[in-house]
Structures are given as structure tokens and as C-alpha cells.
Design a protein around this nucleic acid. Structure first.
Lengths: 117, 117
DNA sequence: CTTGACCCTTACAGCACTGTAAGGGTTTAG
DNA sequence: CTAAACCCTTACAGTGCTGTAAGGGTCAAG
């Protein structure tokens, strides 16, 4: 499968598929002429990358995490270490959420001040 | 007051004070030799910028908002329009928070999957 | 006068993507 | 064979700050 088709099937732009590769998340073989040649399985891998990305992970983090999710078996060895990544990720998310809640409170206060002029 | 002192008093780096100016948030006079000369009042303005910034506003947004907060009187005319800015800002914040909550849920799910291997 | 502390401008770096463009091969259908 | 449709690499742009460095004036104290 060439890059264009993978892009269509996953909804991820060609640009980003190349970027994923640059980040070490995909390693497609190359045809004689240098075209990237993806195995059908990669479709799922890309879906997983999207999922992890939507969980707020950086590509670098996803790279640590992906081996764990790759393959038919959902989980395996290095996951002991990856649990930490996950906890850390959750911590970061909560932290951002807290900051956001604080921002919201400030905005709310401004709104009150203005409404009641 | 020169820039170094304003920086010390507000805890904002010199770099950022110049950046605020570039964004149109501060307009200090210049001494004969070209040094920025801030009036004492600017200390409060900078504090307000920090506050609005901590509410998640972009400098561009703060610029729209600042005239409303500037001056002794906390609020005045253009605030009818600024109410919209504020509502929009809250909407954006809620939107980010929602996305974050979603991310957290995904992470949580991963964590479960892993814990229960 | 000299030195150290300050100030000025311009501009590049970095984060984490994402788009787009330039310049140039490959493949495939007509 | 030719042209459209694809693919390749390299690299710059933009977002929204923030730091840092280069190259060069200004000011105050000794």
C-alpha cells in the first residue's frame, strides 16, 4: 500500500504519515523506486497513534507507548515501565485541567464584574 | 522608571515587557537616549496583563480587553463588545477542558487495560 | 577616563505539530 | 509515447510565547 492510500484509509495527511515515520512510529519498506510500501496492518497502527494522540500524548511519548499496544496481544513486557508513562501522562493532564479551571474562574469573575456595572 | 526596574517590580522578564510593547499593550515614552520610560502606573497594567494571561488569554485578546480594565474606573464603554470576548474566551476554555477530560478518560482506560493484564 | 551595570535593536532557537511549495522522479491509463 | 496522478526530499511558514546572543550605545561611580 502506498502512502496516498494509507492517508485515505486513515484520514491522516500524507505530511503527517511522513512525520510519524520521522518520529520512528512507522517504518514502511521501500519499493525499488523509493516509494513507501505499507503493510495493511499499518492502518491499525495509525489508528492507534491517532488514539494516543487524542489522549494528549506527544509523538515522542507515543513512541515509548506504541510497542506496548502494537501486535495482536494488546499488552506485553515493557509495560511495567509504561505504566509510569501513563501515570505521568495523567498527572500532566490533571495539571492542565487544574490550570484551565483556574483560568475559567478568573474569566467568570471578570464577567461578573462587567455584568454588574 | 526604566525597564529593568519594571521587570523587578512585576516579576516579568525584560524580554516579555518588550514583547508586550510589540503587541501594543504598553506604550512607554522614550528618554532622549532612547531608553523606555515607564510611569509608575504601568506596574498595575503589567499586573493586569499577567492576570488576563493567566486566564488563558492571548496577548492579542488581552489587547482588546485591556482598555476596559485600564484606568481607575474598572470598566467603561467598549465593554459591551468585550463581554462577547469574555464569553468566547470562556467557551474556548470549556472546550479545551472537555477535550482534556476526554483525553483523561482515554488514558484511564489504557491504565485499566494494563493493570489487569 | 574607565569600567561595570543597563539599555537598545535585530534575530535566531525551541516546542509540537501541520501546511505548502519547490524541484524532480515514477507509474499508469489512454 | 504522453500526460495526469502519485511519490520523493528538503525546507520554510505559522502559532504564542520565551530565552539568549550578537553588536553596540548610555549612565553612574570611582
Amino acid at each position: 500500500m502506498k502512502i496516498g492510500e494509507l492517508a485515505k484509509r486513515t484520514g491522516v495527511s500524507i505530511r503527517m504519515l511522513r512525520y510519524y515515520e520521522e518520529a520512528g512510529l512507522l517504518k514502511p519498506k521501500r519499493s525499488a523506486s523509493g516509494y513507501r510500501d505499507y503493510v495493511p496492518n499499518e492502518v491499525r497502527t495509525v489508528e492507534r497513534i491517532k488514539l494516543l494522540g487524542s489522549a494528549g500524548m506527544t509523538l515522542a511519548t507515543i513512541q515509548q507507548f506504541l510497542p506496548c499496544v502494537r501486535g495482536e496481544e494488546p499488552v506485553f513486557e515493557p509495560c511495567d515501565e509504561l505504566r509510569n508513562v501513563l501515570h505521568e501522562q495523567i498527572r500532566l493532564t490533571d495539571q492542565k485541567a487544574a490550570k484551565l479551571a483556574q483560568s475559567r474562574a478568573i474569566l467568570e469573575r471578570f464577567l461578573c464584574d462587567i455584568e454588574r456595572r
